[in-house]
């Protein structure tokens, strides 16, 4: 298994009390597999990633039963100890290439830096590798781009550079956090193709973090749906989309225009609960759930069916909700 995370919880100390950003999250990614993590803003998808990469700020506290990368235990490792892995075995592509690239360094500088750090390579070799990758991600005149600065490039080009940077050391795991959210629709399609091609080419595993269910449907093998810091449903992407079990997943799918073509869009009433203070017992979604009952205030069972499809709900199926 490429990545195995069990029982990951992350708290932040804030002025108003303890914020439980992530609560008991389990994630597993097999070799060569693409896993999607979907959810709306504030559900904890990005913090989860920062959590298992040990990139959390000082105000955060992390607890976990198990974090393993390619069989190696990461729980006991200090943030400094993560350095040989980050950028080397694990490549990360962030959402906004304008803030993720350093505006004061040239593209060439930023691409070769990781390579020189992790490999005993000469500058010349690093430069050749950078040109090769710029070519690979579809950037024309690759050589002359090395001396340019991020602000001289368009959003689509910057995102390609981020991808090239993540690939410099041939990572086994690529993590993409909303890689196309800041881009135009035609550019989005190009970038997604690129990611997909590269994944199959170097046989890497991918974790794709996004709020866009259309992207997840076309890009991933398995998906985990997050709500208020918990994974409420996970399984094969085809199973989760064709037969969603959790009322939240079902509601989310009904909200997307075009999924059903005419009539009114589905609606999830109310707002996300505050995550500050002690975690309440019971289901996190019950305040907005149209089929909630008294039973939802007690401990919620993890249900399972067939092909490793699991969900947390008192109901065995959310059939009939939001039809």
């Amino acid at each position: 298994m490429m990545l195995n995370v069990q029982g990951l919880s992350i708290e932040f100390k804030t002025e108003n009390g303890i914020l439980n950003a992530v609560c008991g999250v389990d994630l597993a990614v097999e070799h060569g597999e693409a896993l999607g993590i979907v959810g709306e803003s504030g559900c904890g998808k990005s913090v989860t990633m920062m959590g298992f990469l040990s990139l959390l700020p000082k105000t955060a506290r992390r607890k976990a039963d198990r974090i393993e990368f390619d069989g190696k235990d990461l729980i006991g490792i200090s943030p400094r100890g993560m350095r040989p892995l980050l950028g080397n075995d694990i490549g990360v592509i962030f959402q906004d290439p304008m803030t993720a690239l350093n505006p004061t360094y040239t593209i060439g500088n930023q691409l070769t830096e990781v390579y020189l750090k992790h490999r005993s390579a000469s500058r010349k070799e690093a430069k050749e590798r950078a040109i090769h990758l710029l070519d690979r991600v579809g950037i024309t005149a690759a050589k002359s781009r090395l001396t340019q600065y991020p602000h001289q490039l368009s959003g689509g080009l910057r995102q390609r550079i981020m991808i090239a940077q993540a690939l410099m050391c041939e990572p086994q795991l690529i993590i993409a956090d909303e890689p196309t959210t800041a881009l135009d629709v035609t550019v989005q399609a190009q970038i997604l193709w690129l990611l997909k091609d590269i994944q199959s080419e170097i046989r890497a595993s991918v974790i794709l973090i996004t709020h866009d269910l259309g992207v997840v449907a076309q890009m991933t093998d398995r998906v985990s749906v997050m709500y208020a810091g918990q994974i409420v449903e996970s399984g094969q992407t085809t199973d989760v989309f064709s037969a969603p079990k959790h009322p939240y997943t079902r509601g989310l799918l009904s909200c997307i225009p075009g999924a059903r073509h005419q009539g009114r869009l589905g609606q999830i009433h109310g707002i996300v609960p505050s995550l500050i203070g002690a975690t309440p017992r019971g289901c996190v979604f019950r305040t907005r759930c149209p089929v909630a009952t008294e039973a939802c205030r007690t401990d919620i069972p993890h249900r399972k069916s067939g092909n490793d499809h699991s969900w947390r709900c008192t109901l065995s199926s959310a059939e009939g909700v939001w039809q």
Binding site: S154, G156, L157, V185, T186, V187, Q188, A189, Q190, L192, W193, K196, D212, L213, G214, V215, V216, A217, Q218, M219, T237, T238, F241, S242, L253, I256, G258, A259
Partner: peptide
């Protein structure tokens, strides 16, 4: 370019090049 939340449709082949 519209990606529908229906798995298996695949990514679109765009008849469009460049930027």
């Amino acid at each position: 370019t519209v990606l529908r939340p229906v798995p298996g449709q695949g990514l679109p082949y765009l008849d469009i090049q460049g930027e």
